[in-house]
């Protein structure tokens, strides 16, 4: 079933939409949730929460890109759950991919007033200027939290190549943001 139909069914509060969402997006939501939570049971619960949240959000939301919408909800739900589960042990900041990004994005100590929305827009522009492989590897790592090994398998690269590609992309992004006036 295509996304427009699923959204139509959500608007009509037709439960067929829930089945269609499960069929089409359970795998995507599960991969994001598992990457973040690293626990199958937590991930499964998070997938249920994600699909329920999507069902409840549409309407009034009318996403133009359901894949991105579901991915965003899954990511937020998973990070929220991780934060809840580990609040006394560790923060979501210990996710390795986020640690890798910390050194190239604005630091609150030095750039407390940097507009996060503007930084997001600049990173989107930067990624558009890269090849498809570069931007997709970057996003698989930092948006979907894939491991280096998973990315290597997905794109038929060696792990070494993925690491180098991510390293070079981070450095290029850091230079780009600095040139655009973002204090790191």
């Amino acid at each position: 079933m295509d996304d427009a139909k699923i959204i139509e069914l959500c608007f009509a509060r037709n439960e067929e939409a829930v089945r269609a969402l499960e069929e089409k997006y359970e795998g995507l939501a599960n991969s994001i949730a598992y990457n973040i939570l690293q626990n199958r049971e937590d991930a499964e619960e998070c997938v249920n929460d994600t699909l329920n949240a999507v069902w409840n959000a549409i309407p009034p939301a009318q996403p133009t890109n359901l894949t991105a919408f579901v991915a965003g909800v899954a990511r937020n739900q998973s990070l929220k759950r991780l934060s809840h589960l580990t609040s006394k042990k560790r923060s979501a900041g210990t996710l390795v991919p986020l640690e890798e990004l910390a050194e190239i994005l604005p630091d609150e100590r030095f750039a407390p007033d940097a507009d996060d929305g503007e930084v997001s827009r600049l990173i989107s522009s930067f990624l558009r200027a890269q090849t498809a492989d570069v931007r997709n590897v970057f996003l698989r790592r930092y948006y979907f939290f894939d491991s280096v090994a998973e990315i290597a398998k997905r794109f038929s690269f060696t792990e070494s190549k993925v690491k180098n590609l991510l390293f070079r992309t981070r450095n290029k992004l850091k230079d780009y943001l600095t040139k655009e006036g973002i204090t790191i």
Partner: peptide
């Protein structure tokens, strides 16, 4: 910051590979 990147980029990455 990462969560607010453009939707079409996210959708492309979701289906990449």
């Amino acid at each position: 910051i990462i969560g607010n990147l453009d939707e079409d980029l996210i959708a492309e990455a979701a289906t990449s590979g």
